[in-house]
Design a binder for these strands. Structure first.
Ligand SMILES: [Mg+2]
Length: 199
DNA sequence: GCGACAG
DNA sequence: ATCTTGTCGC
């Protein structure tokens, strides 16, 4: 476990908080599970064009709060490495993490591209209200905002201001990815319903 | 030691 | 995340 922590510390030290450039293409990735199998989906939107990538993989490591990247980063990175995007949304926190290295940050740093983490619940940090905005702070560091029921945080190569700009509407790429990841799972389920041969 | 705890 | 129908509320 200490080994995984050191990896996260290294990732955290390589995060770049730079201003986002022009955004013409947006990507999003999500993963669903069934019997130890991960069903990953990446969605890319550029204008009216929509591209969808899928991959099924076996996942051994259990879910441990703070170590989600061990389960999902390999799948998500595989799906996105050959798909360029100006900005990528990841289902999970970015810097809003105990060691400032949530899934969105790990993916962003390893792929060297802009990412924003979007989570449905809080992992760590305190909420600080300032006018219309509710910020998320971890160990005194302002890493994101809570908008509606979602938490948006810096992944990599974006600023807090960029995160705020994209926090007003839930990313359609994530909605589609979540939807497609479940459709993909159904296909994998009907292949082995109950007690059919598995090999 | 106890409580919290992304997906 | 997954197991799962209806039900209460905006
Ligand atoms: Mg997910």
């Amino acid at each position: 476990m200490e080994f995984l922590y050191s990896i996260q510390s290294l990732v955290a030290r390589n995060v770049v908080e730079s201003k986002l450039g022009e955004v013409n293409s947006i990507c999003g990735a999500d993963v669903s599970y069934w019997r130890g199998e991960a069903f990953g989906v990446a969605v890319k939107e550029e204008g009216e064009r929509r591209e969808i990538n899928r991959v099924k993989a076996k996942v051994e490591f259990p879910y441990v709060p703070g170590l989600l990247f061990v389960r999902e980063a390999p799948v998500v990175i595989h799906l996105l490495k050959d798909v360029g995007c100006d900005l990528t949304f990841i289902d999970g926190h970015g810097l809003a993490h105990p060691r400032f290295a949530g899934l969105a940050t790990v993916v962003g740093v390893l792929l060297g591209r802009p990412t924003i983490g979007v989570a449905k619940s809080r992992l760590v940090g305190e909420l600080v209200e300032e006018g219309e905005t509710t910020f998320l702070e971890v160990k005194g560091r302002r890493v994101g905002v809570k908008r509606g029921r979602y938490y948006y945080s810096i992944g990599n190569m974006v600023t807090l201001e960029d995160v705020i700009k994209f926090s007003f509407t839930y990313p359609s790429v994530l909605a589609i990815a979540d939807q497609e990841t479940k459709r993909f799972r159904r296909e994998g389920q009907q292949e082995l319903p109950k007690g059919e041969e598995s090999g």
